[in-house]
Protein backbone atom coordinates (compact mmCIF):
# COMPACT_ATOMS: atom_id res chain seq x y z
CA UNK A 1 0.00 0.00 0.00
CA UNK A 2 2.78 2.40 0.94
CA UNK A 3 4.66 1.30 -2.15
CA UNK A 4 1.62 2.05 -4.27
CA UNK A 5 1.34 5.65 -3.08
CA UNK A 6 5.09 6.13 -3.32
CA UNK A 7 4.95 4.97 -6.91
CA UNK A 8 2.04 7.30 -7.67
CA UNK A 9 3.95 10.23 -6.16
CA UNK A 10 6.99 9.38 -8.27
CA UNK A 11 4.83 9.27 -11.40
CA UNK A 12 3.29 12.65 -10.59
CA UNK A 13 6.67 14.28 -9.92
CA UNK A 14 8.12 12.66 -13.04
CA UNK A 15 5.27 13.95 -15.20
CA UNK A 16 5.74 17.44 -13.82
CA UNK A 17 9.45 17.30 -14.60
CA UNK A 18 8.73 16.06 -18.12
CA UNK A 19 6.47 19.05 -18.68
CA UNK A 20 9.13 21.35 -17.24
CA UNK A 21 11.73 19.94 -19.58
CA UNK A 22 9.48 20.37 -22.60
CA UNK A 23 8.64 23.93 -21.56
CA UNK A 24 12.31 24.79 -21.15
CA UNK A 25 13.01 23.12 -24.46
CA UNK A 26 10.49 25.40 -26.15
CA UNK A 27 11.37 28.58 -24.23
CA UNK A 28 15.15 28.70 -23.96
CA UNK A 29 16.88 30.93 -26.51
CA UNK A 30 19.73 28.90 -27.98
CA UNK A 31 20.72 25.33 -28.66
CA UNK A 32 23.05 24.98 -25.66
CA UNK A 33 20.42 26.19 -23.19
CA UNK A 34 17.92 23.83 -24.75
CA UNK A 35 20.29 20.93 -24.19
CA UNK A 36 20.27 21.83 -20.48
CA UNK A 37 16.48 21.80 -20.45
CA UNK A 38 16.47 18.37 -22.09
CA UNK A 39 18.89 17.24 -19.41
CA UNK A 40 16.19 17.78 -16.77
CA UNK A 41 13.87 15.35 -18.48
CA UNK A 42 16.67 12.98 -19.23
CA UNK A 43 18.04 12.51 -15.73
CA UNK A 44 15.57 13.10 -12.94
CA UNK A 45 12.26 12.62 -14.77
CA UNK A 46 13.41 9.39 -16.37
CA UNK A 47 14.70 8.03 -13.07
CA UNK A 48 11.50 8.96 -11.24
CA UNK A 49 9.20 7.34 -13.79
CA UNK A 50 11.30 4.19 -14.09
CA UNK A 51 11.53 3.90 -10.28
CA UNK A 52 7.75 4.30 -10.09
CA UNK A 53 7.31 1.45 -12.57
CA UNK A 54 9.86 -0.57 -10.63
CA UNK A 55 7.78 -0.17 -7.47
CA UNK A 56 4.67 -1.27 -9.38
CA UNK A 57 6.09 -4.61 -10.55
CA UNK A 58 6.18 -7.72 -8.38
CA UNK A 59 8.27 -10.09 -10.52
CA UNK A 60 12.06 -9.80 -10.45
CA UNK A 61 12.72 -10.00 -14.18
CA UNK A 62 10.86 -6.82 -15.22
CA UNK A 63 12.58 -4.98 -12.39
CA UNK A 64 15.98 -6.01 -13.70
CA UNK A 65 14.97 -4.88 -17.19
CA UNK A 66 13.85 -1.52 -15.86
CA UNK A 67 17.18 -1.13 -14.11
CA UNK A 68 18.99 -1.91 -17.37
CA UNK A 69 16.92 0.70 -19.20
CA UNK A 70 17.77 3.24 -16.50
CA UNK A 71 21.45 2.36 -16.73
CA UNK A 72 21.52 2.67 -20.54
CA UNK A 73 19.76 6.01 -20.47
CA UNK A 74 22.09 7.32 -17.76
CA UNK A 75 25.12 6.35 -19.81
CA UNK A 76 23.84 7.44 -23.18
CA UNK A 77 22.11 10.70 -22.23
CA UNK A 78 25.18 12.74 -21.23
CA UNK A 79 27.29 11.27 -24.01
CA UNK A 80 24.68 12.14 -26.61
CA UNK A 81 24.32 15.69 -25.31
CA UNK A 82 28.10 16.12 -25.29
CA UNK A 83 28.29 14.86 -28.88
CA UNK A 84 25.55 17.29 -29.81
CA UNK A 85 27.24 20.26 -28.12
CA UNK A 86 30.59 19.42 -29.68
CA UNK A 87 29.11 19.02 -33.15
CA UNK A 88 27.27 22.33 -32.79
CA UNK A 89 30.44 24.07 -31.57
CA UNK A 90 32.51 22.69 -34.42
CA UNK A 91 29.73 23.59 -36.82
CA UNK A 92 30.22 27.23 -35.80
CA UNK A 93 27.15 27.72 -33.60
CA UNK A 94 28.12 29.99 -30.69
CA UNK A 95 26.08 30.39 -27.49
CA UNK A 96 24.82 33.76 -26.34
CA UNK A 97 27.20 33.95 -23.43
CA UNK A 98 27.79 37.01 -21.29
CA UNK A 99 31.15 35.84 -19.98
CA UNK A 100 33.18 34.09 -22.61
CA UNK A 101 36.38 32.09 -22.36
CA UNK A 102 37.16 32.98 -25.95
CA UNK A 103 38.24 30.75 -28.73
CA UNK A 104 40.10 27.54 -28.26
CA UNK A 105 43.85 28.05 -28.25
CA UNK A 106 44.95 25.00 -30.20
CA UNK A 107 44.13 24.23 -33.81
CA UNK A 108 40.75 22.57 -34.13
CA UNK A 109 41.95 20.06 -36.71
CA UNK A 110 42.71 16.50 -35.76
CA UNK A 111 40.15 16.09 -33.04
Amino acid sequence: MVLHWLSEACLLAGSFLLLTGALGFLRFPDIYARIHACGVTETLATSLILVALLLKSEAALPQVKLLFILLFLMFSGPTASHALAKAAWQGGVRPRATRDAGERPASPAGR
Binding site: I35, P78, S81, H82
Partner: peptide, 8 residues
Protein backbone atom coordinates in the same frame (compact mmCIF):
# COMPACT_ATOMS: atom_id res chain seq x y z
CA UNK B 1 27.00 16.57 -18.46
CA UNK B 2 24.77 14.54 -16.18
CA UNK B 3 24.11 17.46 -13.85
CA UNK B 4 21.73 19.69 -15.79
CA UNK B 5 22.90 23.27 -16.11
CA UNK B 6 26.45 22.42 -17.01
CA UNK B 7 27.63 20.85 -20.23
CA UNK B 8 31.03 19.88 -21.58
Amino acid sequence: NLTPGTLT
